Amino acid sequence: MPFCVQELPQELILEILSWLPVKDLMRFSYFDKDGFTEYWVRFWNPATRIMSEDSPHIVLFDYEYLNVRSYLKFGFGFDDLSDTYKVVMFHLNVQSIKTETRVLTLGDSSWKKTLNCPLFPMPGKLVGQLVSGNLNWLALSNTFNGPYVYEWDGVTIDDLVILSYDLKNDTYRSLLMPHGLVEVLAREPYLGVLKGCLCLFLDCYEDTHFVVWLMREFGIENSWTKILDVSYDELIRIGLKFMPLLMSENEDILLLATERDSQFVFYNLRDNRNRSYSWFRCRLT
């Protein structure tokens, strides 16, 4: 039976927040001028509130690149081979209709062009999900008539892949969707990270269920495991869209969050016949 609480104690809120991955480590900035756009990043430490100086700038000309923010992708992670941090930038070359990759290694004075690939990271989430030294984005396996004119209604499961960029080797590969995912989806899915594993969450069965898949061994496509398949009727809050934040070590409890209004739900996975859940809000003062 579900129950609601209006507000959690402050110490419990802080404990929950301490479980979450550190966000907003990078701030992206740009300057538009006729014919080109200039980009750079800064690094932000939310604990100390210290902001770094600007990174080296990169200039992309409009005649060569699609300078639209939803078609630019960034990622940030640690490369244990070079023992340093890297920033990865994907952008679309409108002449070759290929995705170009540039990498900035912290301490370097310029960005390095590393590779081109035919995969196109989908508009939407700006920052890639870091798992096992790889940055990951949902992508289309082909570019149709140019990726910037695709329509979701024309996308099938077979068109969807995960673009995975290896920070150590500056290479990429594509990973397939879970084998049990066969239907045409009503809306675009999302990638996240749970227990250090890549996860995929989406609406299924004609937008009636919320489903979460977990790739238990990164890069092993047959390790995809469905860990949650729950109807929105069961969650009661129809119309709200969810994202998974955390899973307990023994995988009994899954913490979900709504996209916009800071509502959370603990979902008990222990017994599929009698699953229970509880709602609460977080408000920091």
Rank of each mutant, 00 (worst) to 15 (best):
L175G: 08
L191R: 03
R283W: 06
Y165R: 04
K23R: 12
L202H: 07
N93I: 05
G219V: 05
G154H: 14
N272D: 12
N274E: 13
P121V: 11
C117A: 04
V94D: 06
F120D: 10
L228H: 02
E151H: 08
F3W: 04
L235W: 00
G192P: 03
E188A: 12
P244I: 01
R270K: 15
R102Y: 04
I253R: 03
A47I: 13
F61Q: 12
L254I: 03
F210D: 04
Y277H: 15
G133I: 10
L269A: 02
P189A: 09
F78R: 07
V68S: 09
M1K: 08
I236K: 14
V212N: 02
A257P: 00
F61D: 10
F90P: 00
C117S: 10
S52V: 05
M177S: 02
W137F: 03
Y39L: 07
I16Q: 01
V211R: 13
T114S: 12
L235T: 01
G128H: 13
L119T: 04
T99Q: 05
S278K: 03
V59Y: 03
R283V: 10
D34S: 11
Q263C: 11
Y148T: 11
Y277G: 02
T225V: 05
R275E: 12
R69T: 11
Y65T: 12
T285V: 10
N136D: 08
V94K: 12
F61A: 07
R237T: 04
L198G: 01
D170M: 11
L72S: 02
L138D: 01
I50D: 09
V5K: 03
E7G: 03
R69K: 13
N134D: 04
E53C: 09
N142E: 14
C282F: 04
H91P: 04
L72P: 00
M243L: 11
F266Y: 07
T101M: 08
L20D: 05
V41L: 15
E38A: 09
P147V: 00
V127P: 02
R216C: 07
V59N: 04
I220V: 15
G133S: 10
R216H: 14
V155W: 02
T84A: 14
Y65K: 09
V94Q: 15
K113A: 11
L198Q: 05
E249Q: 09
R173E: 09
I236S: 13
L256D: 03
E53D: 14
E100H: 13
T84M: 11
F28P: 07
L8C: 00
A257T: 04
V182L: 15
S70T: 14
G133E: 12
